[in-house]
Design a protein around this nucleic acid. Structure first.
Lengths: 132, 132
DNA sequence: CTACTACCTGCAATATCGTTGCAACAATAT
DNA sequence: ATATTGTTGCAACGATATTGCAGGTAGTAG
């Protein structure tokens, strides 16, 4: 949480009330949360941050690499804190988003992508998770 | 094209004007097209099919496995004809969607997905394509 | 060929997600 | 303290997609 704010500042951003609330909501939520989830969580927690500010904050955080965005079931973006390099698995039934360490898939995928002239950044696998 | 219509009928669907136009637009477009792309292409070609019909037709075709949906750059769904099993690579710069034969990635992914208890259906890789 | 019926269509309203213009405000540097 | 410049809240807007409904039509049974 503090680290996120410092990185934000290091990137030329300011640590304002709404931004702190977005980061806190993100940390408290854990996993991957949509902009709407965070906005609701902030308001429900008695905070105040406009929808637009939540979106703008998430965009900035993602731009700085502090968070990363993953498309969810309906196409809405879900944001997660950017720990070590990883990819994502999306459950088509419950919408859960699970992290997959990049190492596990790196070599084979890079090869497959390269065959098509692609430089691979990220991938989302879809299927059904263990609980579904 | 004819094959698509037969499969549609085999699935209990009717071959109506709007549906034929959607299938034709999809075949003519090649690659992966969004609902909006197809709607525009149909109207520009002098055809007439309501936006809602295009969406409903694509949903039905996808439900029957005749087409498959891939989220594009902005999260909008793009539809492709479902040939042999393949995954997708999405260019983050130009939005191009390229098919990747499933065989190329099967082994590596099966292992990675299984580790998390995931049954893999589909995956989208993001990065930059050869032309960008 | 006619009539029937379930499926499909077009229209228009609506939902959801996200973006933008703008005036007022506030975090940081000096 | 003051200036500078990034941020905020609001409200309007845009795009994608879905839905209810009345009327129309494909396919089928007679």
């Amino acid at each position: 949480m503090q680290a996120c704010l410092e990185r934000l500042r290091a990137g030329g951003g300011r640590c304002t009330g709404p931004r702190v609330q977005v980061v806190r909501a993100l940390v408290e939520h854990g996993g991957h949360a949509s902009a709407g989830d965070l906005h609701r969580r902030i308001r429900d927690g008695g905070g105040s941050a406009d929808q637009a500010s939540v979106y703008r904050t998430l965009a900035r955080l993602t731009e700085l690499g502090i968070t990363h965005a993953v498309p969810g079931l309906g196409g809405e973006l879900h944001y997660g804190l950017g720990r070590r390099p990883h990819h994502h698995a999306l459950c088509r039934k419950c919408g859960a988003i699970v992290d997959i360490p990049a190492q596990l898939v790196a070599a084979a995928l890079a090869g497959a992508a390269a065959l098509s002239g692609f430089a691979l950044d990220a991938l989302v696998m879809s299927g059904s998770c263990g609980s579904c």
